[in-house]
Design a binder for these strands. Sequence first.
DNA 1: CAATTATTGTCTCATTTTGTTACAATAATG
DNA 2: CATTATTGTAACAAAATGAGACAATAATTG
Lengths: 233, 233
Amino acid sequence: MKSAAKNQDFIQNISYDSVIFGFNGSQLKILILEYHNTEYFALPGGFVKMDESLDDAVKKGVSQRTGLEDIYLEQFYTFGSLERSDPGVMDKILTENNLDMEKYGWMLGRFLSIGYYALINYEEVSLKPDELSDSINWYSIDELPPLMMNHKEMVKKALEVLRNNLDRKIVGMNLLPHKFTMKQLQQVYEAILGEKLRRTTFQRKMLSMEILVRHEKLFQGKAHKAPYLYSFK
Amino acid sequence: MKSAAKNQDFIQNISYDSVIFGFNGSQLKILILEYHNTEYFALPGGFVKMDESLDDAVKKGVSQRTGLEDIYLEQFYTFGSLERSDPGVMDKILTENNLDMEKYGWMLGRFLSIGYYALINYEEVSLKPDELSDSINWYSIDELPPLMMNHKEMVKKALEVLRNNLDRKIVGMNLLPHKFTMKQLQQVYEAILGEKLRRTTFQRKMLSMEILVRHEKLFQGKAHKAPYLYSFK
DNA sequence: CAATTATTGTCTCATTTTGTTACAATAATG
DNA sequence: CATTATTGTAACAAAATGAGACAATAATTG
C-alpha cells in the first residue's frame, strides 16, 4: 500500500490510495501491488509530507510507479472508518520486510485515507514496484485478487465516481492514445459502464458534442471500410 | 471554525468543515459562525478523535450546533493545499479567546480538511454557537460574509456537488417539512440550481418519477385553487 | 351570490433527443 | 470482380422535453 517512509516528516495518520485505471483495448484495468513474502495485494498508496500539498503527494506517488508525468487525477472519496485500519496487516508487511518497528511502527496506527483515481495511457507506462513490493501489475477490474484492508471498497467507489463523471468530464482522452477510432472510444465507454452501447447512437452523440477532430483514415488491412481516426479538440 | 479541543486525543493535522444547507421557503442558506472579538466568519468545523470514525465526528459536530439528530450528510471533498492553512488567523482566534498556546498551539499547524455538506430542515434547528464563537447564523448563499481560510471555496465546491447530485439523490426530502406543495419543491430545486424552472415540466417530471405520495389539499386562504400536499415515498 | 382573481393540475401540440433499422460506401480477399 | 465485414450516415419511430392553453377552484368583492 505505501511507499516506505524514512522519517517523521509525514503527516501522521493520513495516507492516500490510488486507483490507477488503464485500458488495454478491451478491458478496464487497474494497477495492484503485491508485497514481499506476503499474500497481500494492495492499491498503490503513500503518505503526505508536512510541507507538500495532498495533490502533489499523490501525483508524485503515481508518477513514481508508472513513470508518467502530467497524470490525470481526480479525488474521489476520503475513507475514515475505524474498521479500515488493520494493524495486523501492516505488522506482517513490516516484519517480512525486516523493517525496524521503532522507525516504522507509526504505520500500524489508524489512518484516514484519501482516494484518488488516475486515468493513464496503458501503452506508455513503465511499471516500478516500490521498496516494499514484489510486483506491480495490471488487473482487470472484474478479476481482482483479494485486496487488503478496505481496498476493494475503494475500487468500487472509484468506479462509481468515474461512471458518474463520464457524462460531465472527458474521460476517453486520458485512457486512449492521441488518435483513436470511434470504435475504440466506444469500447472505453463500454468498459467503464460495464454495458454495451448502441453503435449508431454513440457515434451520433460523440460527433454532436463537437469535442472531436476527425483525421485521416486508419487502414487496418482488413476486408472492410477503414474507420476515421479522431482526437480530442 | 473548530470546536475547542481540550487534549491531544485528536488526530493531528486533520479537521472537517461542514456546509449546512437549509431552505427558508425561498432562499438556500448555510450556517456561519463568528468568532469572539474577531472579524472572522467560518464554517462550522471540528476535529476527529483517534477512536472515532470521520463520519461520526462530523455527525456529532453538526448535531451539537443544530440540535438535530439523524442528519443527512454527504462528504464532498478533501482540501489538502498548503495555502489553505493560515496560522495567523488561528493565532488571533486563540489569543482573543485567551487560550493557552501550550495547550492549543497545535491548532496553528497545517490541516487537511474534509468537507461535508448537510441538508436540514430550517424550521427545526435550535442553533448553538460553540465555545469560541459569538454567534451561529443563517446566511443566504449569495450574501455570505467574508469567510476565513478557503471556506468560500469550500462552499462553492459543496454547492457544485449538491447540484450534480440533484438528479441522482433525493434532495428535497431533507430540506422541506414532511408534507409540502409542488411549488415548494420546485423552489428548493430553483434555489439550488440558481435558475428558474418551467412549472409544468417540473411537475410532470416529479410525478413521473413516482417518488411522491399525494395527500390532502392545503387551503392557504388565498383566492385560488388549493394545491395538493405531497410527501416522499 | 355572481363576477373576479390568482394559482393549480392537466392536456395538447411542437420540438428535441434518443432508439432502431436500413443501406450505401469501402478496403481487403480470393 | 463478387464476397466479406465494418463503417458512416440517413431515415423513421418512439420517448422526453418545451411551451401554451385551458378548465377547475378557493377566496374576495361588489
